[in-house]
């Protein structure tokens, strides 16, 4: 049986003004992400991979096009509603971990739950479970400056998944890691995808990582390239 389409992007255009002209980044992108599907997006620098990921993740808005999640048109949602939707439905992992340095690993992971309105105890319980799962039980009280690169990225993954999102977006998640840590992080992504039935959309330069995805999309000059 064909899996349900979770997110559908149709005819997405995005450009940035550059001096007197406009720089076209995305030129009529269409794509669908199914429930529990893992999609790898590859392409050269400047091809529009990150911009596409940000638009799919509702962090940015396109000039034109539609973005439908199940039956909701995400681009017509007001900012407040979209923020709540993002908190409940989507998780993000970036190339740089972007952990808040004033907060411990545990507090960083609790953050999305607190933003979503969960109590301190509930948030803590969920964050502890996930950090234990990712082998960070001993590191919960540590601040980001006290963690290694691999640990930082695992904390960032825990933060992205603590709200049990339907879709996880990752933008070059192994870009700053050595090959050993990169391999571990890749394993974690696929392990968690299976465990939580996640839809996974990963932008990467790393071809060995991309090869692990059943579906790989290539982007060139803002268009799909086969």
């Amino acid at each position: 049986m064909a899996k349900k389409v979770l997110l559908s992007a149709t005819n997405i255009y995005k450009s940035y003004s550059q001096g007197i002209g406009e720089l076209q980044i995305l030129k009529g992108i269409n794509m669908q992400i199914h429930e529990g599907e893992a999609v790898g997006i590859v392409g050269t620098s400047g091809s529009g991979k990150s911009t596409l990921l940000q638009i799919l993740g509702t962090l940015d808005r396109p000039q034109s096009g539609d973005l439908i999640y199940e039956d909701k048109n995400l681009l017509s949602m007001p900012d407040q509603e979209l923020s709540l939707f993002r908190n409940e439905t989507m998780g993000f992992v970036f190339q740089f971990h972007h952990l808040m340095t004033e907060l411990t690993a545990l507090e960083n992971v609790m953050l999305p739950c607190r933003i979503g309105g969960l109590s301190h105890d509930e948030s803590r319980e969920q964050a502890v479970d996930l950090l234990n799962l990712l082998g960070l039980a001993e590191r919960m009280a540590h601040y980001p400056t006290q963690l290694s690169g691999g640990e930082l990225q695992r904390v960032a993954i825990a933060r992205a998944l603590v709200r049990r999102p339907k879709i996880l977006f990752a933008d070059e998640p192994t870009g700053n890691l050595d090959s050993t840590n990169s391999g571990k992080i890749q394993d974690i992504f696929f392990l968690l995808k299976e465990k939580f039935n996640l839809s996974l959309v990963v932008v990467t330069h790393d071809l060995s990582f991309a090869q692990r995805f059943p579906r790989v999309l290539r982007l060139k000059d803002g268009q799909w390239f086969s």
């Binding site: 993740g57 407040q80 923020s83 908190n87 993000f92 999305p112 979503g116 933060r159």
Partner: peptide
């Protein structure tokens, strides 16, 4: 930006 990506409103 991170807080906004996590669902914090403007």
């Amino acid at each position: 930006s991170l807080l906004k990506s996590l669902g914090v409103r403007s």
